[in-house]
Design a protein around this nucleic acid. Sequence first.
DNA 1: CTCAAGAAAATTATAGATAATTTTTATTGT
DNA 2: ACAATAAAAATTATCTATAATTTTCTTGAG
Lengths: 223, 223
Amino acid sequence: MAKEPEDTIASRISRVLADRIVRGELSAGLRLRQDHIAEEFGASHVPVREAFRRLEAQGLAISEPRRGVRVASFDLKEVREVAEMRAALEVLALRHAAKHLTPAILDAAEEATREGDAAADVHAWEDANRRFHTLILAPCNMNRLLASIDDLHAASARFLFSAWRSGWEKRTDHDHRAILLALRQGRADEAASILERHVQWIGRAPKSTQKGAAGAEAFAIVG
Amino acid sequence: MAKEPEDTIASRISRVLADRIVRGELSAGLRLRQDHIAEEFGASHVPVREAFRRLEAQGLAISEPRRGVRVASFDLKEVREVAEMRAALEVLALRHAAKHLTPAILDAAEEATREGDAAADVHAWEDANRRFHTLILAPCNMNRLLASIDDLHAASARFLFSAWRSGWEKRTDHDHRAILLALRQGRADEAASILERHVQWIGRAPKSTQKGAAGAEAFAIVG
DNA sequence: CTCAAGAAAATTATAGATAATTTTTATTGT
DNA sequence: ACAATAAAAATTATCTATAATTTTCTTGAG
């Protein structure tokens, strides 16, 4: 059969831990004890430490010498920072990707949007959302840029999952559709400017719910 | 006396190796053998591996499972990618920093510009250049953004040092001065747009030298 | 003389062990 | 009861050792 995509234990551990942090299974500030994690994965602590360095670079954990590693905390200010970085970088990526977008790619992105609209829970929505963004940006063919955007997506998703307490309510993503329409019509600049606005909504505008009761705790979570 | 700023061996190794890669002492594609590096630093290979993970995240090294780590290679396409990312992110940083800039900071940035103009070699110039950018951007107070910009600066500097074969020739940085003037006069938007253009010159336009002999090998190296 | 097999050396990835440090718990004096 | 302090436990950072893999070297067939 095919080789496992990950050869080293360290990369597997870092991927699993990153996923747990993003999904909120490991909450902010929690101490990550290398021996315990090593035991859980049936490994020694050496690969665990390597995984830690990776999480650190992704901004998902912070490490203090001799005091160990903990899950990175984040506040609204940081969420906005990530949103603005995403806006800046995704616009750049889209500008370069635009000329390489094919109808097939745009169809796939439209399908991802539909899946997002139909998503039954926040995780399914996030998955479809990420797929949409990746589909229209990947053709820019700039690996470093795409890697940075990926890390920022993870940070966004982390906020999304942590902020989402109540049930999931389906809705239609008009921004995604507007972006696709503009791209189909060759209006790349307009697509980019919608994307820029779209991404910046994260953690920015208070969301007006039907009850209006959520108050200051509710934020627009899109992107 | 004061504690060393770096407590762990791993971070010291990663800093030294990063510096060597950026300065071109370790050339692209070179294999980094953990035991040799460990021996040089009088350490075991465990902290060396942790340093590797950090260099990987910074884009200065690439690692293939079981095949070791080598110094990352880079081509002109990647240099442009980095320049465009820098442009996007530095503009964002400057927009936020602008309102916090004091005359004292701008004076220090002007001094850095003067030092750059007077620099006797490319390393001194790069040092002053980086100081200029850091001075005017740091007040944005967005740590994640600043960390990303730092990594991109390192990549730019690496290209600068590698491309610079001939002797250093002094010149006056008009862009830096124009940015400072705009900032002093409260025209943040104009400062940002000059900065955007300024940074993108890296690796972009062929540089016209007095001899005209350098040809396709010469690129504008500023920023 | 070139090229491919196979042996030898080097190298990676991981485990297990240890000293130093930090955190937790227990203890004592007020 | 409470704070300060001392003893105990846990944890980190690092080193040394080892199995598995890759690279290099050697050698023999065509």
